[in-house]
Amino acid sequence: MSNQTIAEQVDEFNAGFNAQIGPVLADVFAQEQLALNSGGVPSGAVAVGDVVRDADLVSTDGSTTTLSAALGGKAGVLVFYRGAWCPYCNIALQTYQRDLLPKLREDGVALIAISPQTPAGSEQAVTNGGLEFTVLSDPANVLIRELGIVTEPAATAREAHTQLGFDVADSNADATGDIPFPTVLVVDANRTVRFADVHVDYTTRTEVPTILAAVDAL
C-alpha cells in the first residue's frame, strides 16, 4: 500500500463500502458528490496570497493554543479535514503520515491537521492513524468559516448517516453539522498562503507529490 495514491486507496475503499451499504445509500452519497462538484469551489474561498490569521485552536488534551504557536515560526502545511468519522479523511491523514511527514521534517516544515471536532475526536484521528503530527480543533469552525471553506452534509446525506448509526453533529464541538471542504494550504513563515487546494468532493484529496511540489516552491 505504501506506493498507492490517495485516489487509488479511495477507489478500493469505495468498492467495499458501496457493497456494504447497498445501492440506495450509495446513490445518496453519489448524488451529493455530483451536487458538490456542480456547485464548485465557493467564490470566497481562501486563495494564494491570502494571510491566514493567528487563530485560537484546541489541542487533543483540551488545552487552548494558537496557529502561530503550532507552526512555531516555520512554514507549514495545513490540512483541513471533516473528522475522524470520515473514512476519506483517515485515508488522507494516514497517507500524509507515511509519505509526506518524513520529507516535511527534513525540510523543517510543520504539518498541522485541523477539524471542527471535539478534542476527543481529534485524539481519535491521531489514534486511528498513528499520527505523529499536530492535530487541532477549530471548535466552532471560526477559522474554517473565515477561510470560506465551511459547508455541511446535504440533508439526504445526513439522513443516510443516521441510517448508518452516525450524526456529524455528535462529533463536532459546537454540535452542528458544519464541516470544512477538505483543503490543503501551504503557508510560509508569515502565514501567507503560497498554495491552496480546496476539494468540494469530499472523496478526493490533495496528493502527496502535489503538496511536496508546493513546499519545494517556497
Results as ranks from 00 to 15, higher is better:
residue 136 L to V: 10
residue 85 W to C: 04
residue 175 A to W: 02
residue 174 D to L: 02
residue 157 A to N: 05
residue 56 D to T: 09
residue 56 D to Q: 05
residue 57 L to M: 14
residue 174 D to R: 01
residue 187 V to W: 00
residue 21 I to A: 05
residue 115 S to I: 06
residue 128 N to L: 09
residue 164 L to Q: 14
residue 98 R to V: 03
residue 146 E to S: 15
residue 163 Q to F: 06
residue 207 E to D: 08
residue 124 Q to H: 07
residue 49 G to D: 15
residue 5 T to P: 09
residue 17 F to W: 13
residue 215 V to G: 05
residue 147 L to C: 05
residue 198 V to G: 15
residue 9 Q to F: 06
residue 78 L to A: 05
residue 60 T to N: 13
residue 160 A to S: 07
residue 172 N to L: 12
residue 156 T to L: 04
residue 66 T to E: 08
residue 73 G to C: 11
residue 71 L to S: 11
residue 111 L to T: 10
residue 76 G to H: 07
residue 32 E to F: 00
residue 177 G to K: 04
residue 202 Y to S: 00
residue 127 T to A: 12
residue 95 T to G: 01
residue 165 G to P: 06
residue 72 G to K: 12
residue 7 A to I: 08
residue 186 V to K: 01
residue 146 E to K: 06
residue 133 F to P: 05
residue 165 G to A: 09
residue 30 A to H: 05
residue 211 I to T: 10
residue 171 S to I: 09
residue 199 H to F: 11
residue 34 L to W: 08
residue 185 L to K: 02
residue 94 Q to G: 13
residue 200 V to K: 00
residue 51 V to I: 13
residue 90 N to A: 12
residue 130 G to R: 03
residue 90 N to D: 10
residue 170 D to M: 03
residue 77 V to I: 09
residue 180 P to G: 04
residue 133 F to K: 05
residue 159 E to Q: 13
residue 81 Y to L: 11
residue 87 P to C: 12
residue 52 V to P: 09
residue 72 G to F: 07
residue 51 V to H: 13
residue 196 A to C: 10
residue 108 G to S: 06
residue 108 G to Y: 13
residue 14 N to S: 06
residue 197 D to I: 07
residue 5 T to A: 12
residue 123 E to N: 15
residue 32 E to S: 10
residue 79 V to R: 00
residue 217 A to H: 08
residue 93 L to T: 07
residue 130 G to F: 12
residue 205 R to A: 14
residue 55 A to Q: 05
residue 127 T to F: 07
residue 182 P to V: 01
residue 139 P to T: 07
residue 217 A to Y: 02
residue 47 A to Q: 14
residue 11 D to W: 04
residue 182 P to G: 02
residue 10 V to R: 03
residue 176 T to A: 06
residue 144 I to W: 02
residue 111 L to Q: 07
residue 157 A to P: 03
residue 107 D to H: 03
residue 7 A to L: 13
residue 100 L to Y: 11
residue 71 L to N: 08
residue 170 D to Q: 14
residue 32 E to R: 01
residue 59 S to R: 14
residue 156 T to Y: 00
residue 188 D to E: 10
residue 120 A to E: 15
residue 48 V to P: 01
residue 13 F to Q: 06
residue 194 R to S: 02
residue 158 R to A: 06
residue 71 L to K: 12
residue 24 V to Q: 10
residue 192 T to A: 15
residue 153 P to F: 03
residue 69 A to M: 01
residue 202 Y to K: 00
residue 24 V to H: 04
residue 109 V to F: 10
residue 73 G to S: 06
residue 185 L to C: 14
residue 15 A to E: 14
residue 141 N to V: 01
residue 155 A to D: 14
residue 195 F to R: 04
residue 155 A to G: 05
residue 165 G to R: 07
residue 77 V to W: 05
residue 151 T to I: 04
residue 193 V to N: 09
residue 163 Q to D: 11
residue 160 A to I: 10
residue 90 N to H: 14
residue 171 S to K: 13
residue 214 A to P: 06
residue 51 V to G: 11
residue 200 V to D: 00
residue 44 G to E: 10
residue 23 P to L: 07
residue 82 R to M: 07
residue 164 L to E: 10
residue 48 V to Y: 03
residue 148 G to N: 03
residue 68 S to R: 11
residue 99 D to S: 12
residue 60 T to S: 15
